[in-house]
Structures are given as structure tokens and as C-alpha cells.
């Protein structure tokens, strides 16, 4: 198991490196003059030339790429923001906790509400409660979360005046952003739970468990859920990525000073370094989460674990990885 974790950690390095290269390349070929952004409008042409030379913008693509990668991965420095001239690394350190809080609490809600809801629907298939749960989760999947955020503001801040419309502070400030951010994840978790529970519910081992006279709660917790859990974990990992990305708009609406807000500001100011830093950081966070979901899957399912345990010959072929 430890070997597997180490191997997966090592495999993450090239992926992250490639993400950085990809993001750098996308931004590199973006039309626009970085020197102009740094110097501001109305700078004389000679000065811009000088600046371009000192920033190394006249160097070939590979030299610039190498320099950027060296800076990010060896010195662990995301560079200096072009407009505000602040260190992006320290900006991110200040902002990352907000984005993570938003996504982590969102995921926690998605799991705590989504899984019980899905289990309930599966156990009461085609009854009234299930129908309602299915409709509600379908609505949750289809509602644009930024619109939901606006409607929440309209109801709870403008009409009722219960919650603050924007900013950060106590718990009251977090309620609406978290609800808006996690509704989609909650709904997908519920849908996935329902469908994978329905797949195991008629299995022979459930009949056996029932005929043994086990309590319903024991059957659900010990026999159904563990077997239905693998796709649910995958969906939860994907949801986390959705919430990290979706938090971008939510942070902007509620003016939460997280990475997403920084990114959108970077985009409007054409601050390419800030955008690159933010995207790379969030992608790394996402990769770590995906690794964690893989490990949890191995932990939950002995069949997956067996493939990596000790020095058992690996049965998984390199091409057998399905989409």
C-alpha cells in the first residue's frame, strides 16, 4: 500500500509539470503585451523595449518556459503580479484558505446530504418520497449556481434582510456562498448514490443478509453502501474539482477574497502571471484531491487494494485503464 501511495505521488509530478507547461503555453500565445501591462498605459516605446528586455520577453519560447518552470518548481515562487507588483505566492497563501474552506465545507455538505438522500430514494424506489427526491436532485443538477447565488441574495439579503449580501466575516457570511456552491454537488451525489444503490439492492448477498435476519440499518451500512461506494467516491472527487472551479464565480459574486476572486481580477487586469499562478495552484489542489479519492477507493474496496498490496504480481495491464 505504501509503495502504491509513493508511486502515485511520483506519478503526480509529471502531470503537474505538464499542467504548468500547458497553462504557460496557453498564456504565452495569448495576444497582448506583458510589458505594457506591467508599465501601465502611456509609457514611451523605448522604456517598454527596455522593460521587455529586462523581463526576458524577447527570449525564445523554450527559454522563457524553462525559466518559468525553474522559478515555480525549484524556487517555489509563482512570480510577481504584473499590476499590483505583489508576490503571487504570498497572495495565494492569504487567499487559498478561503477557497479551500468554500470547497471543503461544500463537499462535506454534498456527502452528508447527498448520500442519505440517495439511499432513501433507492430504498423507496418509485414511491412519492423517491419521486420528490429525484425531481429535487434533477433541479439541483440543472440550476446554474451563479444564478442560484443571485436569487439567494435577492431573497435573504434584499427582501428579508437576514444575511449579509457580500464580504467575509462570521458564519452568516458563509451560509449563502456554501449553499450556492454545493447544491450541484449534492444533487450529483444523490443521483449517483441512488443509481449505484439500485444496482446492488437486488443482489443475492442482500437477500442472504436479509434472510439471516439482520437489521435494515445493518444491511444498509454493512452490505449495501460499501458495495455501492466506489462510483460515489469518484463522483465526489469530480465534484470537488467542480467546486474549486465553480467557486471562481461564487467568490466573485460574494466578494470572498479567495483564489477565484484573485483570478477573475487578474483576467480583467490582463495580469497574466497572476492567472497562471492561480490556475496552476488550483490544478495542483485538484490533483491532490483526485489522488486522495483513488487512495480512498483502494481503502474501501479490497479488490482494488489487492492489486497493489505487497509484491503480488500486478494484474492490471497498462492498457486496461478504462475511461
Amino acid at each position: 500500500m505504501l509503495k502504491y501511495i509513493l508511486k502515485r505521488l511520483l506519478m503526480m509530478i509529471p502531470v503537474i509539470l505538464c499542467v504548468a507547461i500547458l497553462v504557460f503555453t496557453i498564456i504565452y500565445f495569448t495576444p497582448g503585451d506583458a510589458a505594457q501591462v506591467v508599465a501601465g498605459q502611456g509609457t514611451p516605446a523605448e522604456k517598454l523595449d527596455e522593460l521587455r528586455e529586462s523581463m526576458g520577453l524577447n527570449d525564445p519560447y523554450f527559454v522563457q518556459l524553462g525559466r518559468y518552470l525553474h522559478q515555480v518548481f525549484v524556487k517555489l515562487d509563482l512570480g510577481t503580479a504584473m499590476v499590483n507588483k505583489t508576490s503571487i505566492t504570498s497572495d495565494m497563501q492569504a487567499r487559498f484558505p478561503y477557497s479551500m474552506t468554500l470547497a471543503l465545507i461544500g463537499i462535506a455538505f454534498a456527502i452528508c446530504v447527498g448520500i442519505p438522500l440517495g439511499v432513501y430514494s433507492a430504498l423507496h424506489q418509485n414511491k412519492v418520497g423517491d419521486r420528490i427526491a429525484v425531481v429535487v436532485s434533477m433541479l439541483g443538477v440543472s440550476v446554474p449556481h451563479f444564478w442560484l447565488a443571485l436569487m439567494l441574495i435577492l431573497l435573504f439579503s434584499v427582501k428579508l434582510g437576514w444575511l449579509p449580501a457580500y464580504g467575509v466575516g462570521g458564519i452568516a457570511y458563509w451560509i449563502m456562498p456554501i449553499i450556492a456552491n454545493c447544491v450541484g454537488g449534492m444533487a450529483t451525489t444523490a443521483r449517483q448514490t441512488r443509481s449505484s444503490m439500485l444496482e446492488v439492492i437486488h443482489c443475492d448477498y442482500i437477500v442472504t443478509a436479509r434472510s439471516k435476519g439482520l437489521k435494515q440499518s445493518q444491511i444498509i451500512l454493512r452490505h449495501m453502501l460499501p458495495n455501492a461506494l466506489i462510483p460515489i467516491i469518484t463522483v465526489t472527487g469530480m465534484n470537488f474539482g467542480g467546486m474549486l472551479g465553480g467557486g471562481l464565480i461564487i467568490e466573485q459574486i460574494f466578494t470572498i477574497p479567495g483564489v477565484g476572486f484573485y483570478l477573475t481580477k487578474g483576467i480583467t487586469q490582463r495580469d497574466y502571471y497572476a492567472v497562471m499562478g492561480g490556475v496552476i495552484l488550483l490544478s495542483v489542489a485538484f490533483s491532490v484531491i483526485m489522488l486522495a479519492t483513488d487512495l480512498i477507493q483502494a481503502f474501501v474496496d479490497p479488490r482494488i487494494k489487492a492489486q497493489y498490496a505487497g509484491d503480488v504480481k500486478r494484474r492490471r495491464k497498462p492498457h486496461a485503464r478504462e475511461a
Partner: peptide
């Protein structure tokens, strides 16, 4: 690699 960047980002 493409899928390890969150979709909206």
C-alpha cells in the same frame, strides 16, 4: 493532463 485542470478554469 487536460482533465487535471478543473473544467471551468
Amino acid at each position: 493532463i487536460i482533465q487535471s485542470i478543473p473544467g471551468l478554469l
